[in-house]
Amino acid sequence: MADISGDLGSFSFEAELTEEEKGLLHLRARSAGLTFCGCAHAAFLCKLVQSLRRIKGPAADRGSSASGQDRDVCVGILGMGHVGKQLLLALLEKSGVKPSHIKISSRTPESAVEAIKKGVECFFDNGRLAAWADVLFLCCLPSDLHKVCADLHSRLSKHCLVYSFTSGVPVTRLARLLGHDFILKPQYDFVACGTADVWLSCTHLTTALADPSLIEASCPLTTRGGISVGLNWVSAVLYSLLNICTSTGLGSSDALSLINTVLKEKSPHAVELDALSFISASQEASMCTEEPFPWISLTDAQTKETPLLRFLSSSTPMQQRISAAYRCMLCPAQ
């Protein structure tokens, strides 16, 4: 149906704004862009983990009758405010995780009625969610964080990846509160950009996630949309995949092969990740190919210079490969 007010300026949102207020309109674009990028990046992470588990399954479960579905990643969302709701939509739309493998802990289960109809289980038990999840998204308010961390403390498996959307709380503090070091906390920066208004079209997240131009603008290693999460986040995501391989006892050679496969190499000449991409030369020299990589603290990976961060900073081809994997996973028809 056509919008009969589309060409009538007096009916637009901006019509009643003062000139001073119009100067703040960019904040609306930033808010929409942050929500979109946060949800798209989280879906990409889940897609990577899901792909890793699916590929790893036959080798790790040799002799087992476990089905591919049994190897699906279990994703928990703690909190169903604005971010939690948008994240759930993104995961259902783009992550490849089945609704039956997503659970929510919320004080307001009625806020997830539509998700429950799709097969997502919702309850109010933070500890139960933490004990079940492979990936746990924190979407709570900073004011609720101490209570939430108390609920989660000692209930988190060492191998549960915690991904925090809680603003104003650095990863180092969160690690202390949770007694846990397998935590990802994206840090977004705003970059001067002539196309930042692209985010104003993100009115409906599910529609926006189908737009290749918005997926391109949200690509972690570009600044086309004026929002950047940078190499620290990408490095921590790759270390997360390495830790997942380590947690299953997978040898370093097999782990590298899996991670390179998940990144969807399309050319026989594409640059690959090797042991020295992740660890120091002295660590690599003392490790055999059948031995798993050492467990990597994601807190350190996000706050210190690492071999992987140095490698990514100097390798444009690897940055391009990761960007291509991002586009391919979130917009496969592109």
Score class of each variant (00 low, 15 high):
Ile227Leu: 12
Ala15Tyr: 06
Val171Met: 04
Ser95Glu: 03
Lys22Tyr: 08
Leu184Asp: 03
Asn232Val: 15
Cys37Tyr: 03
Thr207Glu: 14
Leu129Lys: 00
Ser286Arg: 10
Pro186Cys: 11
Phe11Gln: 10
Lys85Gln: 14
Cys219Gln: 03
Gln302Pro: 06
Leu88Ser: 10
Pro294Tyr: 14
Val262Cys: 13
Ser51Pro: 01
Asn243Ala: 15
Pro142Met: 09
Ala29Leu: 06
Ala324Asn: 04
Pro212Ser: 14
Pro170Glu: 09
Pro332Leu: 15
Val169Arg: 01
Ala66His: 06
Arg173Tyr: 08
Leu48Pro: 01
Gln86Phe: 04
Ala90Met: 04
Ser64Lys: 00
Thr203Ala: 12
Ala66Arg: 02
Lys266Leu: 13
Tyr239Pro: 00
Pro109Gln: 03
Val97Ala: 07
Ser65Gly: 09
Ser247Pro: 02
Ser277Tyr: 04
Ala208Cys: 10
Thr108Leu: 12
Thr108Pro: 01
Leu52Thr: 01
Thr261Glu: 13
Asp61Val: 05
Thr203Met: 08
Glu284Thr: 05
Leu309Ser: 07
Ser51Tyr: 04
Gly225Trp: 01
His26Tyr: 12
Thr261Phe: 10
Ser157Cys: 14
Asp189His: 08
Leu250Glu: 03
Ser213Asp: 13
Ile322Leu: 13
Leu161Trp: 01
Val237Ala: 12
Thr195Gln: 15
Lys117Pro: 05
His269Val: 12
Ser154Ala: 14
Lys158Phe: 13
Lys56His: 11
Lys118Ala: 15
Leu241Val: 04
Gly194Ile: 08
Leu242His: 00
Leu136Arg: 00
Val83Thr: 01
Pro220Leu: 13
Arg310Gln: 13
Cys328Tyr: 10
Ala32Pro: 00
His41Pro: 04
Gly76Ala: 13
Ala275Ile: 08
Arg62Pro: 00
Cys37Asn: 09
Leu308Asp: 04
Gly57Thr: 02
Gly79Ile: 03
Ile227Pro: 00
Ile244Ala: 10
Ser111His: 14
Asn126Thr: 05
Leu178Thr: 03
Gln187Val: 12
Cys202Ala: 15
Pro294Leu: 15
Gly33Tyr: 03
Pro99His: 07
Leu88Asp: 05
Leu8Asn: 10
Lys158Val: 09
Pro142Tyr: 13
Ile322His: 02
Gln302Leu: 13
Ala275Trp: 02
Val113Thr: 05
Gln283Trp: 03
Arg128Ser: 15
Gln320Gly: 08
Thr203Asn: 11
Leu276Ile: 07
Ile215Tyr: 02
